[in-house]
Amino acid sequence: MRSNSLTADLQPINKNIRKRFVLSRLHSLAGIVPLGIFMVEHLLTNSTALLGREKYNEQIHLIQSIPFLPLLEIFLVAIPLIFHAGYGIYLSMISKSNTQTYKYERNRLFFFQRVTGITTLVFIIYHVWSFRLAPVFYGTEINFDLVNSHLENVFVFSFYVIGVVGAVFHFSNGIRTGLITWGVTKGPASQRIAQRICLLFFAVFGVLGVTSLFAFI
C-alpha cells in the first residue's frame, strides 16, 4: 500500500547520495578547466607549424623546458582526462538516444557530444602513444619531422582530421552545456547566444586545428 501522508519519506542525508552530483560537477569542471584550456593551448602550440619548421621546433623546446613537466602532465592532463573519459562513458551508457524521433537541434548536439566523446578518446589514446609515450620508450626526439613522418600517411592524416574536429566540437559544445550546468545561461535567449558563440569558437579552432595539420605535410 502506498501511504497518502503528506510527509513523504525523507531520504537520509549522507555523502553517498550526493556522490553522483559531485561527480557530475567534477566531470564538467575537468572538461573545461584543465582539459579544455590544455586543448586550446595545444592547438595554439601546434599552429606554430604554420610559421615553419624552425618556429615549431623552437616552441616544442620551450614547452619541454617547463619545470616538472611530467608532474603537470599527470596531474593537470592525464588524471582529469581519465576521470572525464571514464565518467563520460558511464553517462553515455545510461542515456538512451532518441534523435531518430526527436530531431531537435539540441537533441542532436546531445547525441554528437556522446559520439565525439568516444572518437576523441580513441584519438587521444593513439595520439598520446605516438607523440608522448612512444618517443619516451624508443628515445626518439619530438619535432616537426616526427609529426611529418606520421601525417604523411593518408589514413593517419584523415584520422587526425576527424580526431581534431571531433575534439574541438566536444569542447565547444561542452562549454555551451557547461554554462547551463553551472547555472550561468538560464533562459532560452542567453542559451541561444551562448550557442552561437560556441559555434564560432568551434569554427575558429576547428579551422586552426585542421590547417595546422596541413602545415605538417
Binding site: R20, S95, R106, F110, I180, T185, K186, G187
Partner: peptide
Amino acid sequence: SNCGNSQNCVEVCPKDIPLTTALAELNH
C-alpha cells in the same frame, strides 16, 4: 546531475512550461 541538456523536455511540453529555464536555475 542526471540532466544531459538535450532539452527535449521543453520541446515536447504541451503546456509550453519553461522546463529548461527551471533546470538551469536549479543548477545554480
